Amino acid sequence: MLLIPHNSHISTTTMGTKMCRVLGLAIAVLFLATPLASAACNKDDLKALLSFNSSFPPHTLPDWINTEDCCSWAGIHCDDGTGRVTSLLFSNDDFNDFEPIDLVGNMPPSVGDLSELVGIRFSILPNLVGPLPHQLSKLKKLKNISIYNTNLSGPIPSFLSQLPALERLDMSASQFTGSIPPSLGSLAKLRYVDLSENGLTGGVPPSLFSRLDGSALATLSLRQNKLAGAVPRSFASVAFGSIDLHGNRLTGDPRFLFGKSKPATTIYLGQNKLSFDLTDVEYPVANLEYLDIGHNEIYGSISEQIKKATKLTYVDMSYNRLCGRIPSGGSFGNITSRDFSHNKCLCGTPLPPCKK
């Protein structure tokens, strides 16, 4: 997962938008890698797409009514040999491949009739509203769901657990509420979950990634929600490449997310209510690039071991209860005072010198 590091110069909203754009680009590349269609559009898919279009105001997608070859329509990608629709791509970001669109209304249930769909992407569509249709559960080959920066709402549907091929789930920057379904943990291939910038409540399900192969890197972003409770202890056995829990109401001791052998490049735990002793924490020095534990209730000192994280380019440990001398040199060569401000008794560069 590509993440934009949090810092004091970038607002949470702006950062979230940038994050979505980068995430969208990655998924767009996946979709556009689908071979260009040469076979004629499958008649059942054509029927489903015409029903899809008729659910929105007239001429929302005008080129869809000018030809029966749906594989040539904007936003549609087909299998080269069969003519079956494999992905839907509707976006108003900077790298779409068609003119700006405005889908006004609910996502039509006819999406579920496109039985060969592998990926769907609906992004930066502020007038797309309502819940996800249950008919999505029919798409047993669906690998990628990317729905961000919309006004879709309601709960994160538990029927998503009925999609056995699902690998990537991005439903960020929308209006989803309620709890995260524990049933998502039953998906053995799910390795990427981004539910950030919604109104989600409750706890983080311990079942998430519980069936994922231990050698597969997982990405989790739940930033800017209203989640509470402890970070699940079960996450100790998950190989997170990136975990972002910033801006919730999480409590407890998540030291099990750290460890010098962990593969994480990004650990964002800032702006929660976490409380633990940082003194003996070992950092994933081989890969760590971004570390945010600011605005918590963390105490203890900062281990000299962190200097071995040679890729570390961003750190925020501000607004905690830390004490002692800040390590100097190594990856800490470009730190600023605000990265460590408002602690109990930290001292040394870039803060005032320690008292002798």
Rank of each mutant, 00 (worst) to 15 (best):
12 T>L: 15
12 T>E: 15
13 T>C: 02
18 K>W: 15
22 V>L: 14
26 A>V: 14
26 A>S: 15
30 L>N: 14
32 L>I: 06
42 N>F: 00
48 A>N: 03
51 S>K: 12
51 S>W: 02
57 P>E: 11
57 P>N: 12
57 P>Q: 11
60 T>R: 06
61 L>T: 09
63 D>I: 13
68 E>V: 12
79 D>E: 04
80 D>R: 11
83 G>H: 01
86 T>R: 10
86 T>K: 07
88 L>T: 09
89 L>A: 11
102 D>L: 07
107 M>R: 01
114 L>M: 06
128 L>N: 02
131 P>K: 02
132 L>K: 10
145 I>M: 06
148 Y>N: 08
148 Y>L: 06
151 N>P: 01
162 Q>N: 15
162 Q>C: 12
166 L>K: 03
171 M>G: 05
174 S>K: 04
177 T>Q: 08
179 S>P: 03
179 S>T: 13
180 I>C: 05
184 L>V: 08
196 S>C: 09
196 S>G: 15
198 N>I: 03
220 L>A: 02
229 G>Q: 11
230 A>N: 14
231 V>H: 05
238 V>T: 15
256 F>R: 10
263 P>F: 08
270 G>Y: 06
272 N>H: 07
277 D>A: 11
281 V>A: 11
285 V>P: 03
286 A>Q: 11
287 N>W: 02
292 D>Y: 13
293 I>S: 03
296 N>G: 05
317 M>K: 04
318 S>H: 11
323 C>F: 13
330 G>M: 09
340 F>R: 02
341 S>G: 12
342 H>M: 02
349 T>P: 05
351 L>T: 08
353 P>F: 09
